[in-house]
Design a binder for these strands. Structure first.
Lengths: 87, 87, 87, 87
DNA sequence: ACACAAAGTTCGCGTC
DNA sequence: GACGCGAACTTTGTGT
């Protein structure tokens, strides 16, 4: 490495720029983790109030899906279950 | 490293033994990957025959679960869905 | 269901309360998804600037780990790799 | 459903065929699970012999990758780490 | 029971 | 545009 190298140009990489990018991502990930914690807290609260967490998770998942798609999928599933005697 | 070192005792690790373990795992993983491929093939065949792959996956998942547990979970889910007007 | 039932007490579930919980989680998940999108954008920007995204991801992962733990883990790994001639 | 329906033609689905497919997959999944158990056993044995399981997992992962690709990736990573002073 | 880890599922990406 | 691959998230199991 030449004597011109410094913190801002290590081996052809603009160190400062790279660092900026990384720190931006890290900040966003921190905020994201904080939200994840918040969700965890709400779930704990839910549970403490006597709700079934797994069922609530299922509800959340269902609400994310398109109702038509979901109904369609359920219909096929039921068809197969009937065919297999899993009613 | 001392002059006593050889392929079977590198830095205090019994290289031969370690290699044996690793190769055993790799063989098992190979077989496992082969089975995974077989499953993939069956799924492709299913699909080619006109079946809905996602629904079949759901069926497989359901069949793995205890029927009582499943029924219980469904009952709770339905209760919540009714409460939320998602019927 | 008895005539006393209303939107707030469906089958013994306090519908309003349940709904509150669910909507709280959904709001948090929305914010979380927005942050995920932001991260995605930064990654795209990184990439456009010529950086290797996978390497940046690795950097981010490394920075999350305790430096001491990491060094220890690396030392063991190197030991094993030497033993196996993977140097 | 018409009076012609039987176990082999439920609602337009060839129940027997569907069942065959599902049972084939289930058999394969069983074998796969058995192998997974075997791997788990080997890992436990490894551990009992004093090896670091996590490091062994890393070795296995590294050996799956193309050596050239890996070296390339490591070079980039090192470059970035130097630029960030993480050496 | 809690946290850590492993498995499965899902989503985004690159490829053809 | 679909398909297969790889990474991320979620969920399930385990060990403390």
């Amino acid at each position: 490495m030449s004597s011109m190298e410094n913190a801002e140009s290590q081996g052809g990489v603009a160190a400062g720029e790279l660092r900026q990018f990384i720190e931006r991502v890290e900040r966003l990930e921190e905020e994201k983790a904080a939200l994840q914690d918040d969700i965890k807290d709400v779930m704990a609260e839910l549970k403490a109030r006597g709700y079934d967490v797994k069922a609530v998770r299922t509800i959340l998942a269902l609400r994310k899906k398109d109702p038509d798609e979901r109904q369609e999928a359920e219909a096929i599933l039921e068809l197969y279950m009937n065919a297999l005697g899993m009613a």
